[in-house]
Simulated assay, not measured.
Amino acid sequence: MLSLVLAAAQPQTPDPAPDQPVAAEPAVLAAGHVDIGPRYVDDEWTLLIHDDAAQPVWRDPDRTVLQVTDAAVQTVPDDPVYGFLGVPAGTPVHVVPQVQHPDVVWVGWNTQDPQVMQTIDRGVTLELAGVDGPGEVTMYLQAGTFSEPQVLWSSAEPPGQPMWVEVNTHTHANWVFTAPGVYLLAVRVSADLISGEQVSATRHLRFAVGDATDPDEALAAQPGELAESQQAAAPDTGGAGADSGAGGTGPWLVTGLVVVAVGLAVALLVVVLRNRAVRRRVEQERVQS
């Protein structure tokens, strides 16, 4: 079942150094500590992934896959406080935990890049700008065994869901994926600078969830194309259930169209007959006069 864990708001990991490079090569990160966070690259504001798994380095989200292996599988507890996950109790889900698991990539966020700390005014705003994937994604904090979960982001909600992050913050949360497959999470990071300037950047985090999911597929995925390919790959369940969806053309939709057409025809006939009766009455009045 999902672990009820103590908060890990300030993990004891080294702060990013000002001269840490941005790696050029692609990478698949399946374990170890990583953070997403704002960074300046050639004096341009952006969002990168800070990788502490080996030699600390920043990585480009477009060239980095966060692989969530089956070591992350847990089951949803039989507890109504987890109803926000949108799946029944006992359902297996992949969980990137709030507290580090040695065999699962540990994803958090930080605002500790030295140049970022020197230029932003108080903090930044992180937003979930969109999600492409085969299931739902939820990120939440849980402060202790008897505390209810605090949902930060949910793909079941409209895009946005702003989260304020103060300067010099380093935090981890629980990330829950309800189905295996490739996910692209569009994350926007915005800030007011002490100069008065406003900056913003949106990047896509690439998750390959489940041992059977190919990280190369996540690396090559494009947001629009991913949504289309996963829709095309969805199994055809057939029968009335498949035809009765919002975009379907099944029997219920056909029946509805027939009813509407018959109703219009009856209404038109009534109008025609009424007009004829009016004309006859007018002609009779003329004859009598």
Rank of each mutant, 00 (worst) to 15 (best):
residue 207 F to W: 02
residue 173 A to P: 00
residue 128 L to C: 11
residue 22 V to G: 02
residue 116 V to L: 05
residue 95 V to T: 03
residue 58 W to I: 03
residue 224 G to W: 13
residue 32 G to R: 01
residue 193 L to T: 12
residue 193 L to G: 06
residue 181 G to E: 01
residue 65 V to G: 02
residue 26 P to V: 02
residue 140 Y to M: 04
residue 239 G to W: 05
residue 125 T to D: 07
residue 104 V to P: 01
residue 216 D to G: 14
residue 228 E to C: 09
residue 90 G to V: 11
residue 97 P to V: 00
residue 8 A to R: 08
residue 17 A to D: 10
residue 148 E to D: 14
residue 136 E to T: 11
residue 281 R to N: 05
residue 125 T to I: 14
residue 18 P to Q: 12
residue 136 E to Y: 05
residue 116 V to F: 05
residue 221 A to S: 03
residue 287 V to D: 13
residue 114 P to I: 05
residue 4 L to I: 00
residue 266 V to F: 10
residue 4 L to A: 04
residue 209 V to M: 03
residue 78 D to V: 07
residue 206 R to G: 01
residue 246 A to W: 11
residue 96 V to E: 00
residue 50 H to Q: 08
residue 64 T to K: 04
residue 14 P to W: 10
residue 89 A to I: 09
residue 38 P to L: 04
residue 91 T to R: 09
residue 178 T to G: 04
residue 240 A to T: 13
residue 212 A to I: 10
residue 46 T to F: 10
residue 122 R to N: 14
residue 16 P to I: 10
residue 25 E to C: 08
residue 204 H to Q: 06
residue 108 G to N: 02
residue 122 R to Q: 15
residue 90 G to K: 15
residue 139 M to F: 05
residue 184 L to N: 00
residue 158 P to F: 04
residue 218 A to M: 07
residue 118 Q to K: 12
residue 199 V to S: 07
residue 201 A to G: 13
residue 73 V to L: 04
residue 264 L to A: 12
residue 61 P to W: 06
residue 67 Q to V: 15
residue 36 I to F: 13
residue 99 V to M: 00
residue 155 S to Y: 06
residue 47 L to H: 02
residue 128 L to Q: 09
residue 282 V to K: 07
residue 260 V to F: 04
residue 236 D to P: 02
residue 115 Q to I: 07
residue 47 L to C: 12
residue 36 I to E: 02
residue 16 P to V: 08
residue 266 V to N: 06
residue 229 S to F: 04
